[in-house]
Design a protein around this nucleic acid. Structure first.
Length: 540
DNA sequence: AATTCGACTTAGCATTCGTCAG
DNA sequence: CTGACGAATGCTAAGTCGAATT
């Protein structure tokens, strides 16, 4: 059969280059600006002004946001006004210099209406729109990398708008400028069909740099950072890196697990003791006196404390990483975390899984193990802003449901009585009906209560992040295979896509803590099994 | 030695989608 | 059939890390 190998079945290249052939259609430029209708007026000091195209466009960015908290902030407003004035023509600039004299309300109302209309689109319109979107993805959303058709993560150039930093960002409100083809550098192989810039335009540059994975890049004007167009997480390059990450964490595992720290030992200060069984069960023992800083940091990691910005500035991380790197190639603070998370998950799963429990209970056990990981590794998040409120809602729902259940129970009892004491056919049917609805309601109540527990337990825990980034997916895959839990219950669609390699690769007996597998080993025996082959990888 | 840079990787908010009760 | 709500997805800011530069 002509079935080709999936990327994780191929031999790895060792020349440091990321590809030999790379072809794509280039990024999709942001749609051109469309003016608001004439009857939508902007006024300054009460006087109607017809703004030039660019001035109107930028005014529109602000108008969309006038109800937002941002627009109450001084920094945001002054940054915006400054940048807005930069795009004005000399006439406009002469007139407009005070934001409080601007009236954006008609524009705002127009955009609100536009959103409303969008929501109320007819079925046909929605369908047409969807199809157009799919067409764009089909054209721009894929690339060919060494014969594999791969999804691109972000093929759309970021459209212009107002910069919204997080927190009290000093640059909030600044104008993020429109990017044109002349700002974009294209990366593709020389023997590929080079992407064409839009009619009458040209790219900033076209290059063929096989040492990097990006397909296009541009420099964003607010912070001066380079933005890249890259493949998505399910793709070859990303997946390979992901795999590598877990392999590194696995092969350094014993040392990390068996480091002990001593403030004082045999007259020396800040001693790190390595003590573990290495390959072939040979004991490795070593005492190393390290710098205080390093020692402190190791302590932090041992305690699984998240490095809050104030606790752990960049300088320290760098020193730590340098030292860790001397201990082992590729070992960084991040890998520590990965190791910790994955090891804990596996241990917790072993501990918590009841092999005889029904599938639903196993899923609960799995989720609990996941949470235990997050707690131990301190993958915390601030409680969501709306947590209390949505919890309150949920509790109210539960209370209401409970009341309903109790009421239905009473009714049910009465009907039962009526049905039993020589009741009519109709009374019996009524009783059966009520019983059914009681069952349904009880189930609903139970489900609600579970979700409340779940929510509460999840309040300050960020599960998704660790699941997606720190936990070796093969552990979860192995677990699901071992206990016959469908993988769909463990990973959603996106996650399944990202971890397809693990789903194919891991068997029920995969052990994260065990002997690392030979990375370069080429599995050639998957031939007969046609499943697991996604829609990607379709070129020959 | 410190800072900046380049290339990713991760995170968190916003929007869209899908489901499910009413 | 509708609309509310939570989950999924999209988008892009922010963090990381090794290398280059100052």
């Amino acid at each position: 059969m002509g079935k080709h190998l999936a990327w994780w079945e191929e031999n790895k290249r060792d020349d440091g280059l990321k590809w030999t052939f790379l072809e794509h259609k280039g990024p999709l430029m942001a749609p051109a600006y469309v003016r608001v209708p004439h009857n939508v007026k902007f006024t300054y000091e009460g006087k109607h002004m017809v703004l030039s195209d660019e001035t109107e466009e930028v005014a529109g960015f602000y108008a969309r946001m006038i109800e937002h908290d941002y627009c109450t902030k001084k920094v945001f407003n002054s940054n915006f006004l400054k940048d807005w004035r930069r795009v004005m023509n000399s006439k406009e600039k002469e007139i407009i210099n005070d934001l409080s004299k601007c009236d954006f309300r008609q524009m705002h109302a127009f955009f609100v209406q536009q959103n409303e209309d969008r929501k109320n689109r007819t079925k046909e319109e929605k369908k047409a729109l969807k199809e157009e979107n799919e067409r764009l993805i089909a054209e721009y959303g894929w690339c060919n990398i060494d014969g594999h058709k791969q999804r691109i993560g972000n093929f759309k150039i970021e459209p212009p708008g107002l910069f919204r930093g997080r927190g009290e960002h000093p640059k909030q409100g600044m104008l993020k400028k429109r990017i044109g083809p002349e700002d974009v550098i294209i990366n593709c192989s020389k023997d590929s069909a080079c992407p064409k810039p839009p009619e009458g335009r040209r790219w900033k540059e076209v290059r063929a740099d096989a040492a990097v994975t990006w397909l296009a890049c541009w420099v964003e004007n607010v912070q001066g950072q380079t933005k890249y167009v890259m493949l998505n997480a399910a793709s070859k390059l990303k997946g390979e890196k992901d795999w590598q990450k877990y392999e590194t964490a696995r092969s350094c595992t014993n040392r990390v697990e068996h480091i002990t720290l001593h403030d004082q030992k045999d007259g020396k200060e800040h001693v790190v003791v390595f003590d573990f069984l290495g390959k072939d069960s040979i004991r490795y023992y070593n005492e190393v006196s390290v710098e205080k800083k390093v020692f402190k940091n190791l302590q932090l990691f041992k305690e699984n404390k998240e490095e809050g910005n104030d606790l752990f500035d960049r300088l320290n991380t760098q020193i730590l990483n340098k030292h860790l790197n001397e201990l082992m190639d590729g070992l960084t603070a991040k890998v520590f975390r990965t190791y910790n998370a994955s090891a804990t998950l596996q241990q917790q799963l072993e501990l918590l899984t009841d092999p005889d429990a029904p599938v639903s209970a196993k899923i609960l056990q799995y989720n609990r193990a996941n949470r235990a990981v997050a707690v131990l590794c301190n993958h915390q998040r601030a409680a969501p802003k709306s947590f209390d409120k949505s919890m309150e809602n949920l509790q109210k729902k539960i209370a209401d449901k409970r009341e309903l259940v109790e009421e239905t129970e009473r009714e049910c009892k009465q009907l039962k009585k009526a049905a039993k004491s020589g009741g009519s056919q109709k009374e019996k049917i009524n009783y059966e009906k009520k019983k059914k609805s009681l069952e349904r309601l009880s189930e609903q109540l139970e489900k609600l209560e579970h979700s409340a527990t779940d929510k509460e337990e999840n309040k300050t825990i960020a599960l998704g992040t660790s699941k997606l980034n720190y936990l070796d997916p093969r552990i979860s895959v192995a677990w699901s295979k071992k206990y016959n839990v469908p993988i769909e219950k463990v990973y959603n669609k996106t996650q399944r896509q990202k971890f397809q390699w693990a789903i194919d690769m891991a068997t029920a007996d995969y052990n994260f803590l065990g002997e690392p597998m030979n990375i370069t080993k080429n599995s050639s025996d998957g031939e007969g099994e046609g499943e697991g082959e996604g829609e990607e990888d379709e070129y020959e």
